[in-house]
Simulated assay, not measured.
Amino acid sequence: MQIPIINRSRHPLPAYQTEHAAGLDVHANLAEPVTLKPLQRALIPTGLFMAIPVGYEMQVRPRSGLAYKHGISIVNSPGTIDADYRGELKVLLVNLSETDFVVQDGERIAQLVVARHETIAWEPAEELSETARGAGGYGSTGMQ
């Protein structure tokens, strides 16, 4: 799949780090480092602009290494870039740790995954088909 992209950063395009990786690592594009205090969030620019094909979304997901080592995640995880969005890709990072974290220019801050999606039309109904689970909600599966 080809996706048109404009790179206004000083960093390489998002890239797969291994042969079978699903996500492409994306870099922070910062004029100066950004310090995230515990529970603080910040919108981190990437300098990237892209045109996602209709019928697809670009998911923005946390990097497992940042999450495990530093407690850094993405507030709206996964974030979605829609096919009609043409603005700069920015990543909404949050520091879930108890210590400050400094985001450096060029640091790999998230991963991008392209996913196909369907567009639905609601079909109003008066009742729904029965299932074994029924209306059982949170924590209801596996309970006897």
Rank of each mutant, 00 (worst) to 15 (best):
H20T: 07
Q40T: 11
Q2C: 06
D25E: 07
S140N: 03
A28N: 01
P33W: 03
D84M: 09
V54G: 12
G79C: 04
I44D: 03
T99I: 15
T46F: 08
T80F: 01
M1V: 12
A110L: 01
Q144I: 13
A51T: 15
G137Y: 12
L89Y: 07
P14L: 07
R63Q: 04
R133F: 08
N76H: 06
V91E: 00
D84N: 13
R116P: 04
W122T: 09
S9H: 03
A110C: 02
L43A: 14
E123Q: 06
D25S: 04
I109Y: 01
E19L: 09
E88C: 08
E32I: 04
G106N: 09
T119D: 14
A22D: 00
R61P: 01
V26K: 05
A125M: 06
E57T: 10
S73R: 00
F101D: 02
S77N: 04
E98T: 15
Y68L: 15
V113E: 00
K90A: 09
L13T: 11
A21K: 08
Y16K: 13
T141S: 11
Y138P: 02
A135V: 10
L93D: 02
L24P: 06
L13W: 12
E126L: 11
N7K: 04
G65W: 09
R63N: 00
T35N: 04
A15M: 14
G142S: 12
K37V: 13
F101Y: 13
T18N: 09
V60R: 00
H20G: 12
S129E: 05
V34Y: 00
Y85H: 12
V102G: 05
P12N: 10
D82R: 14
T131G: 02
Y16D: 05
G65P: 02
L112Q: 05
K69R: 14
H70F: 12
Q111P: 08
D105A: 06
L112G: 02
P124D: 05
L48I: 13
P78V: 00
Q144V: 15
E32C: 09
R61Y: 00
S77G: 07
R133K: 05
L43F: 12
S64M: 03
H20Q: 11
D25Y: 04
E118Q: 13
V26Y: 01
A31M: 11
G139K: 03
L66E: 03
Y138R: 12
I44G: 02
I5P: 07
R8W: 14
V91F: 00
A132H: 10
L39K: 15
E57Y: 02
L128M: 02
L39G: 07
E127Q: 06
E19M: 10
V103R: 07
D25H: 03
N7R: 12
R63T: 01
R8I: 06
R10I: 11
L30D: 03
Q104R: 09
G142P: 06
